[in-house]
Simulated scan of single mutants.
Amino acid sequence: MIVDLRSDTVTKPTPGMLEAMFAAKVGDDVLEEDETVCELEEKLSEMFGMQAGLFCPSGTMANQIAIKAQTQPMDEVICDESSHVYRYEGGGIAFNSAASVKLLRGDRGRLSAELIEPHINPRDIHYSATSLIVLENTVNKGGGSYYTIEDIEPIYHLSRLKNLCLHLDGARIFNALTEAKDAPKDYGRLFNSISVCLSKGLGAPVGSVLMGTTDMIRKAKRVRKVLGGGMRQAGYLAAAGLYALNHHVERLKEDHLHARIIGQALETLPFIDHVMPVETNIIIFKLNHDVNPDSFISRMESRGIKCSKFGHQSIRFVTHLDVTPDMIDYTANILKQVL
């Protein structure tokens, strides 16, 4: 048995998704003639109560476009020190937007208005101009921790008061919505822009959608073109995203249940120092100091279970739609024997 817990990006399209992809009606999306892409953009924009959407090849590109479209060179972006836009997007904020970054240390990656406010720069020529706050939901480095609408509203009011834009890296937003039971449209009223990744928990092979105002998306479309993200008959990919939205959102509860089962199993093991609270589909745990993480990963892989090193002494498991209950039981049993 092979159990791939490295990431929820490793999923393969389901038979139903493949069928939808093959049946897609396509055109040239750069010429705005791909009706399946348009359908996907309109569906998500309506779902989140936003004016327009833009289909992008990746979540990284969607985030970087959002930052570029809402900042000027020499501006400053506020985000958590563990955020994906800072850690895992190749220094894109500096390269693409010529903006600096103010890094804050939130609660497992989650910021608050009280934490942010003292770090907003005054309007002074000696300082970079704070112009954008970026939140991530769920937080990858936070072990799948998530914001609720109640958490975000004070940050929204602060951003309005200080005339700042607010962007959501919604890489796993539907995982957060599933747990918090919040409505997508509540997010649309709080954020200037939102990116939604389709290729993680939702199981599409590729793609993200950036949403915002009509004017912002018009500007974003130009930035996407400059970055080489203008795709042609992209409807085959967009069809996978549509299928995922229609069939794979409710089942995210299964991934969260599977993650909790693994988390509970880990807490009983003597070689585990600490397990982060398991709230969605990500499990991050720290091995005791005398356990070599590379050896642990190798031993797990020799038994058919793939996982990722995630910092000093830390390991990450991620559940997803290709992981079955039998695989979860198998993993829990192997963990008891691996050391």
Rank of each mutant, 00 (worst) to 15 (best):
G142R: 09
G142Y: 08
G143Y: 04
G143H: 08
G143L: 12
G144Y: 07
G144F: 02
G144E: 02
G144R: 03
S145E: 08
Y147M: 02
Y147F: 10
Y147W: 05
Y147Q: 01
T148I: 08
T148P: 03
T148V: 06
E150G: 14
E150F: 13
I152E: 05
I152S: 10
E153M: 15
E153V: 15
P154A: 11
P154R: 05
P154Y: 06
I155N: 02
I155R: 08
I155Q: 05
Y156E: 12
Y156G: 08
H157C: 09
L158C: 11
L158I: 14
S159Q: 11
S159C: 15
R160Q: 14
R160V: 14
R160M: 13
L161C: 09
K162V: 13
K162D: 07
N163E: 15
N163T: 10
L164C: 04
L164Q: 06
C165D: 13
C165H: 14
L166A: 06
L166R: 03
H167W: 10
H167D: 03
L168S: 03
L168M: 07
L168V: 03
D169P: 02
G170S: 03
G170I: 02
A171P: 08
A171N: 10
R172N: 09
R172S: 13
F174T: 05
F174N: 03
F174G: 01
N175Y: 10
N175L: 10
N175F: 14
A176M: 09
L177M: 02
L177F: 03
L177T: 00
L177P: 03
L177V: 01
T178Y: 00
T178I: 07
T178V: 09
T178W: 00
E179C: 05
E179R: 07
A180N: 09
K181E: 15
K181C: 04
D182F: 00
A183G: 00
A183N: 14
A183T: 10
A183Y: 15
A183Q: 13
A183F: 11
P184R: 09
P184C: 04
K185Y: 10
D186R: 14
D186M: 12
D186K: 13
D186E: 15
D186C: 13
Y187C: 13
G188N: 12
G188D: 10
G188A: 15
R189A: 12
R189S: 12
L190S: 08
L190I: 06
F191P: 01
F191K: 06
N192P: 01
N192H: 07
N192A: 05
S193C: 04
S193Y: 01
S193M: 10
I194F: 07
I194K: 02
I194N: 00
I194L: 09
I194T: 09
S195T: 09
S195Q: 07
V196Q: 02
L198Y: 06
L198V: 08
L198E: 06
L198F: 12
S199Q: 13
S199F: 12
K200G: 07
K200V: 12
K200D: 11
L202K: 00
L202C: 02
L202P: 01
